[in-house]
Each structure stands twice: as structure tokens, then as C-alpha cells.
Design a protein around this nucleic acid. Structure first.
Length: 640
RNA sequence: GCCGACGUAGCUCAGCAGGUAGAGCAAUCGAUUCGUAAUCGAUAGGUCGCAGGUUCGAUUCCUGCCGUCGGCACCA
């Protein structure tokens, strides 16, 4: 007879087989009410699952991540049930959970409209209210194929056919709706209290663009209404921070239809920020021992054959331009150019490591549907650099890049990082020895830096292992900008060499690395991270000089001039407007400091200082102000 | 590229059973000279994304194209 041990270490004995629900009830009625599923020896099961032998058992509630997952998955089923009732011709396919919610793909001869979504959601709520029991049953594989085919569910039948023969299939029934599912599921639909359908979109059957397109409905689901509301609020917050919106409001950049999608125009204020980013970048790299190079935008197509890009990456490259003698290729990458420069002369092992950085602008073909503000564009500037080094220098060099990366990202206000190490894929170039050595060096560098990391086995590029670093922005979203990639391919293809101590010719290792990735994309991430509130060192206008009447005009011009002479970015606003109006406008433009000048300040030769956050710093002299600004800018502080 | 939605003044949006359009903000001009998040008034501004079609007549209906947005696929 079963004895169950619980997560807190306690044991309970039963004199007959019991279900998860029985165990939960035995512990307490509150827990029984909250139970959405259970765990037996680590495996998730339904609450009706029967335990007939000794086992480690846990009750899963909506407080557990797995519980929330189950709620989302069950909500997807609930949606499918509602859709089948309202649109009997729609065929069900798959309905997995995703971050914050779920989707379900249906085969239907037309798209679902927002009105359809409302109807579906309404029906879902009714079905939830009926508190229909969700019951599991099993069926033989072949029998299940037959069963779904008879119901006209061709897609489901196809899915089941891909399951090995002889396996038992589990089915879940709620009301008249039956779906193939591994489970587990909530015990009854009444557990689903907080969900919302969010959008419809097309999606390919089995994710393959050669297949037909299905209708996908996205939804979000939570254990309770409050969490749902919080989630919807986060979505609103993300919308508020949208870099495309803020970029237009603050006049930072634009994308011009007449010029074409995916090409960024940096307006003066955005270009100002970009210059600050770049200045900082150059400064950091100079300190870290980099030299800077500049390479052309196009080059002989032959070069791209040598590098292999013309073959492997043809889809992402623009068509070559033909002149009378040769074809030129617009560059999608900078690396071959740096390799050519390296090969321009013979290098000694004493020269290594060589670190060459370039803000290199590249152009890549992107399909129209892929374009997205600054995040996905056709022309962008990589903060690129290549390190050419000996094998025994890899670890030190990678540690150096990690230091540089983290310091740079921290300066932009990013504090949390996820490090990912990707190792050898199946179709790789280079010997096992070099892969082993290099991968060990990358891992060593990460570990010596005391960083946690996740391993992506087989996730490396065909030409070498890599480290990716993801940042978390102010509202917790992750962005991957930084990457450190080893390359055994290009040195080989270009026959790169250095002369070793023993006078033998050896192959250098090439490290590609970018900290910001694309300056355009990074700028987009920064805009959203700061919600446009750039710290003073980055702010396009650091202080606005606001006059109360035209009596202060001359004084205001003088204040602006004097601060500008000290290197600050100052804009006077002498318009004949009320001070409240000016404060509002410049606050909305996220100007860090507003300097209000009236007769009183003019007489004292001071300025009244207000921050964009509405804080009144009182009046101060220009010297006091410039000291404060100077410190803030020099420290590249992240706040105001 | 694929599915869907959308495209009206610089911006945000209203309107239209088919009879060539309207508001707020911005802009311009004028008045106001004002103390910490919107002063008042006037003026100007539109080939209603583009091209065809239906119609006596199209911004409105239909078709195609372009673009934007949400996804999918793609992202060295």
C-alpha cells in the first residue's frame, strides 16, 4: 500500500491506492482546492492520477511555475473547444504554451476577425463557468489516427501518425471536445479564471514556409485576474516605450518610405546620441588596447568567394554591381577587409594579438516582413572588431573582451546578463583538437570571470564556438547584442599566417566580436530601456534655458553661451510663452535640466534649476550648476 | 516572402446608405510679458497611399500595386 513522501520531507501512508487529489485533501482542503496537477517521482500528472506504490509526491498549484504552465495549456484547450463549437469547420492542430500565454493553430478557410475573437473569448468564459471536468483517457495509436480522421481532423491524425506505432496516446475530453494531448491538465474548466485572447496571425503548418498557412490565435492566461491585469499593464508599458514612437516624439530618427524600408535616417538629436555612444566606444577600446581601421563599403565579388560569403550567405547579400572590368559587392560584413589588411604584410608571433576595431556599416537583404523599426534594418553599423591571436592567447583575449563588454553595457545601465556558450555543431570546419582547445578556452574565460552561463551544445557556428551575452532592460525583457565568436574558417580560406618562435608559419586564430552588435539596434534597445529618459551624458539637450518674460532674453543667451563654452549641450527657449507651457514641453522632450530665468535670477546672476522628474533643485550659480553637470557627464552616470 | 489588419492635414484621429472632407495638437500671424506640466484669437494646410474598374458621380464599392502594423518564415 502506498506511502508517499512530500517535498517538506514528511511521509503519509495510505491503506489503498490514492489519487493526487486524495493526497491533497489529506493534507488540507485549501491545498485540495488549489491543486491543478501533481508530481509523482518528478513526473507531472493529473490530479486524478492514481498512486498505487510508494512515491515522492508533490501537489502542483497555481503558485508553481509548472502550475501556471498547465493553466496556460488548458486555456489553449478551452479556446480550441470554443472555436470548434463556434466554427465547426475549423480543424485543430497544435496549441502549446509560450511565455505569458499560449496559442492554438487552426486550419480554417479564412482568418479570424477581432469580432470572432470576442465571440470565442465569450464562449470560453461560459465554458469555464460550466466547470466541465477534464478527463483523460487513452487509445491505441492506430485507433487514434482512425478516430481523428473520422472526425475530419486531418492535422491531428497526421500528428498522431508521426508518433511511433504501438505507443499509447492520451486524450483529454471536456464536454464534447476531445483533443490529443500529453497533459497534464487542470481537473476542470472552472480553474481557468483569468485569460484574454490577444491577437490573430498566420502561421505555417509545422513551421515550414512551404506548407499551407494556418490561423493562429494568441492568448494570455494567469492564475488570477490580478496577475492578468499586471501582465496587460506590462504590455502597455512596453508599448509606451516603443522606440519607434519615442524616436518620432523626440525627433531622434526616421525611416523614409521614399528611400526604402530598413534604412535609418539619424536626425540631429539622434545623431548627437550616436556620437556620444561612439565616442565612449572608441575611448573604451583605446584603453583596452585596440587600434582602429576603416574599410570600404564595396569590394570585388571575388573577395566574397574567397571568404565563402558569396556561397553561404548569398540570400542575405545584395546583388553585385557590375562595372566594365569587375563586379563589386556591397559588404554584408567587415571581416574579409580586416583579413586583407592583416595579410598586407607578414606578421611575427610578437605582433599578436592584433586588435582592430571598426564602426563598420554593412548592408544585408532583409525580407520586407522582417523589418522592424531600428531592431531589424537593411543598413546598419556594427561595432565590429577582430582579434588575431595565437591559440594560447585565446583565453586571455576572450577574458579581455568579456571585461570590455560588461563594463560597456553597465555604463548604459544594464546590470543583468545571461551568458551563453555555444559549442561545435555537426557540420563544422576545423579539427577536433582545435575545437576542443578553443571551447575549453572560452569556458575557461567565462569561469575565470566568475560568470554563470548556459551551454548550448551544438549551437555554435560552423566556423567556431561562440559566447553570446544577453542583457535585461528596465522592464525585464532580454536582448542579445554582444557576441564573441571564434573563427577557424576565414584564416584558412585566406591562408593567414604568422611566423612563430621556431620560424615556422602558423595559422592565427580569429575572434569576431561586437559589444553593441548593431548601433542602430542598440540605440533602439537604449530608447526602450530608458523610455527616452537618456542620462545626462547621452541626452541630446542637457539643459534648456527657459525665460519667463522677454526681459531675461539677453541674460538667457548669455547663460546658454557660457554653459556651451564649457561643453554642455544647451538650448535656450525665448518664446513668448508662459513658463508652465515651456516646462511642460521641455519635460516631455525629456531634457534632464530646466533652467528657469526670471527677474530674480537675473538680478542674482543665478539660475533656478528643475529636473525633468519635477524636482526643484533651487537656485544656484552657473559655477555650481556646471560643476554638477560636469560631474554627472564625466561619470556617465545612469540617472539624473 | 506568407497570413491578417490598416493607410483621411506635419501628428493623433473623426467622417462617408457613393454627391470631392472635419476636430484637437503642431505651423503661421496677432494679442498677451505672465514664476515651475498646455494663455487667447485669427489664418493657412488635404490629388482622402498609388493605379485601374463599376457608376451620371468614388475618399466611400471592386481589383491590382506600394507602404505600415501584428504574427509566421528568415536573421551568417
Amino acid at each position: 500500500m502506498p506511502a508517499v513522501s512530500l517535498p517538506d520531507g514528511s511521509r503519509r501512508e495510505f491503506d489503498q491506492p490514492v489519487t493526487i487529489m486524495d493526497v491533497a485533501k489529506d493534507i488540507g482542503t485549501g491545498l485540495a482546492k488549489a491543486a491543478v496537477a501533481g508530481k509523482v517521482n518528478g513526473a507531472l500528472v493529473d490530479v486524478r492520477h492514481e498512486i498505487d506504490d510508494d512515491a515522492e509526491v508533490a501537489i502542483v498549484t497555481d503558485r508553481d511555475p509548472e502550475g501556471v504552465e498547465i493553466i496556460r495549456h488548458s486555456t489553449a484547450h478551452l479556446m480550441a473547444q470554443a472555436v470548434k463549437e463556434l466554427f465547426p469547420d475549423a480543424q485543430v492542430t497544435i496549441g502549446p504554451t509560450i511565455e505569458n500565454g499560449f496559442y492554438y493553430d487552426f486550419a480554417y478557410d479564412r482568418g479570424f476577425t477581432p469580432e470572432d475573437l470576442e465571440k470565442i473569448e465569450k464562449r470560453m468564459k461560459e465554458l469555464a463557468k460550466q466547470d466541465l471536468p477534464v478527463e483523460r483517457s487513452t487509445m491505441d495509436r492506430d485507433e487514434a489516427v482512425e478516430y481523428f480522421r473520422n472526425m475530419g481532423e486531418e492535422y491531428k491524425a497526421e500528428i498522431i501518425e508521426s508518433i511511433p506505432q504501438g505507443e499509447t496516446i492520451s486524450l483529454y475530453r471536456q464536454g464534447d471536445f476531445i483533443d490529443l494531448c500529453r497533459g497534464p491538465h487542470i481537473p476542470s474548466t472552472g480553474k481557468l479564471k483569468a485569460f484574454k485572447l490577444t491577437s490573430v496571425a498566420g502561421a505555417y503548418w509545422r513551421g515550414d514556409s512551404d506548407n499551407e498557412m494556418l490561423q493562429r490565435i494568441y492568448g494570455t492566461a494567469w492564475p488570477n485576474k490580478q496577475q492578468l491585469e499586471e501582465h496587460l499593464h506590462r504590455l502597455k508599458e512596453a508599448e509606451r516605450r516603443d522606440h519607434r514612437k519615442i524616436g518620432a516624439e523626440l525627433d531622434l530618427f526616421s525611416i523614409q518610405d521614399e528611400a526604402g524600408g530598413g534604412l535609418v535616417f539619424w536626425h540631429p538629436k539622434g545623431a548627437r546620441i550616436r556620437r556620444e555612444i561612439e565616442n565612449f566606444w572608441y575611448e573604451m577600446h583605446e584603453k583596452a588596447g585596440y587600434d582602429f581601421v576603416v574599410s570600404p563599403h564595396i569590394a570585388n565579388l571575388e573577395l566574397w568567394h574567397t571568404s565563402g560569403h558569396a556561397e553561404f550567405y548569398a540570400d542575405s547579400m545584395y546583388e553585385p554591381m557590375q562595372d566594365e572590368h569587375q563586379a563589386f559587392q556591397l559588404k554584408p560584413m567587415n571581416c574579409p577587409f580586416h583579413v586583407l589588411m592583416y595579410k598586407d604584410r607578414l606578421h611575427s608571433y610578437r605582433d599578436l594579438p592584433i586588435r582592430w576595431g571598426e564602426m563598420g556599416t554593412v548592408y544585408r537583404r532583409e525580407m520586407s516582413g522582417a523589418l522592424h523599426g531600428l531592431m531589424r534594418v537593411r543598413g546598419f553599423t556594427q561595432d565590429d572588431a577582430h582579434i588575431f591571436c595565437r591559440e594560447d592567447q585565446i583565453e586571455d583575449e576572450v577574458m579581455g573582451v568579456i571585461d570590455l563588454t560588461l563594463e560597456t553595457l553597465r555604463t548604459f545601465g544594464f546590470e543583468d546578463f545571461d551568458v551563453n556558450l555555444s559549442t561545435r555543431p555537426d557540420d563544422a570546419v576545423g579539427s577536433d583538437e582545435i575545437w576542443d582547445h578553443a571551447t575549453r578556452a572560452l569556458r575557461g574565460a567565462i569561469e575565470k570571470k566568475g560568470l554563470e552561463y548556459t551551454l548550448d551544445e551544438g549551437g555554435g557556428a560552423f566556423y567556431g564556438p561562440k559566447i553570446d551575452i544577453k542583457i535585461h532592460d528596465a522592464i525585464g525583457r532580454q536582448w542579445q547584442c554582444s557576441t564573441i565568436q571564434l573563427d577557424f574558417n576565414l584564416p584558412e580560406r585566406f591562408d593567414m599566417e604568422y611566423v612563430a618562435e621556431d620560424n615556422e608559419r602558423r595559422r592565427p586564430i580569429m575572434i569576431h566580436r561586437a559589444l553593441l552588435g548593431s548601433v542602430e539596434r542598440f540605440f533602439g534597445v537604449l530608447i526602450e530601456h530608458y523610455a527616452g529618459h537618456f542620462p545626462t551624458w547621452l541626452a541630446p539637450v542637457q539643459a534648456s534655458v527657459l525665460t519667463i518674460t522677454e526681459r531675461q532674453d539677453d541674460y538667457a543667451r548669455d547663460v546658454a553661451r557660457r554653459l556651451r563654452e564649457q561643453g554642455f549641450r544647451i538650448e535656450p527657449d525665448l518664446r513668448n510663452e508662459k513658463i508652465g507651457f515651456k516646462i511642460r514641453e521641455h519635460t516631455l522632450k525629456r531634457v534632464p535640466y530646466l533652467l528657469v530665468l526670471g527677474d530674480r535670477e537675473m538680478e542674482e546672476g543665478k539660475v533656478a534649476v528643475r529636473t525633468r522628474d519635477g524636482e526643484d533643485l533651487g537656485t544656484m550659480s552657473l559655477d555650481e550648476l556646471s560643476e554638477r553637470l560636469g560631474k554627472e557627464v564625466a561619470s556617465r552616470g545612469t540617472g539624473t
